[in-house]
């Protein structure tokens, strides 16, 4: 579905991604783990088209989208939930969701909106409230829901559990598994490496802009170097 080869990106003269090769297959949940500053967010932004790439290729369903603008990728089904939620604070919850469906037809958006409200009833209760007044957990639900409004076929999740209480983290991860079960491919970046790898089909380990290890979720969880570096064992 998504194939990334030799992808490079830089901030000014400082390289952030130094030749990334990875793939996400249809319906798969792939986790990316790595330390702060390893380039996880940069990689997701490059996949969404909001970070310029300086080399390499991104192919999606056979088409080259390396230089496609972000809005085209959203239309193709690559949708990101950004780090730090990034909701439209002053706009209402419902406006945030409707804007999530900006690339979709009005009728399609209306039916997706009902599905999203059924999934997170609290968003329906608070649909008139400015998004910025929601709690952190509710904002994360809103950020995920906003992405779902675009009917993603590949969902990119950047640190969905960051700053959330453990009970909410469980809820978010359960929701992610539910989405995968509904046949949405997911590329998940999370600081909670153990939880992420536990639900992942496959995983990659990113260190200073390079993929240093790849394998199934279970393999990586059992790997001694991963345990030492990311699982605190």
């Amino acid at each position: 579905m998504l194939e990334v080869s030799a992808l490079e990106s830089r901030y000014g003269r400082i390289p952030a991604l130094k030749g990334i090769d990875l793939a996400v297959r249809a319906g798969e949940l792939v986790a990316l783990v790595g330390a702060n500053g390893a380039g996880k967010t940069t990689l997701l932004r490059a996949l969404s088209g909001v970070q310029r790439v300086s080399g390499g290729r991104v192919r999606y369903e056979g088409a080259d989208i390396t230089n496609a603008p972000p809005e085209r990728r959203v239309r193709l089904g690559i949708v990101q939930v950004p780090e730090g939620r990034q909701v439209f604070g002053p706009l209402s919850v419902e406006d945030n969701l409707r804007l999530g469906g900006y690339t979709r037809r009005a009728a399609e958006s209306a039916s997706t909106l009902e599905r999203v409200y059924a999934m997170f009833p609290v968003l329906r209760q608070r649909r008139q409230a400015p998004a910025g007044t929601l709690s952190g957990g509710q904002q994360q639900m809103l950020a995920i829901s906003r992405a779902l409004m675009a009917r993603p076929r590949l969902l990119l999740l950047d640190e969905p559990s960051m700053g959330l209480a453990p009970r909410l983290v469980e809820e978010i991860f359960a929701c992610v598994q539910g989405l995968r079960a509904a046949d949405t491919a997911i590329f998940l970046v999370d600081q909670n490496a153990r939880a992420a790898l536990a639900i992942a089909d496959r995983g990659y380990v990113l260190e200073t802009g390079r993929i240093v290890l790849a394998g199934s979720g279970a393999e990586l969880l059992a790997d001694a170097s991963v345990q030492a570096a990311y699982l605190g064992l």
Binding site: V50, P70, Y102, A150
Partner: peptide
């Protein structure tokens, strides 16, 4: 309006 509040998020929803 959304673009003025949060440019990155606006791009990510396909604006």
């Amino acid at each position: 309006l959304a673009t003025s509040h949060n440019r990155l998020a606006a791009q990510l929803v396909g604006i």
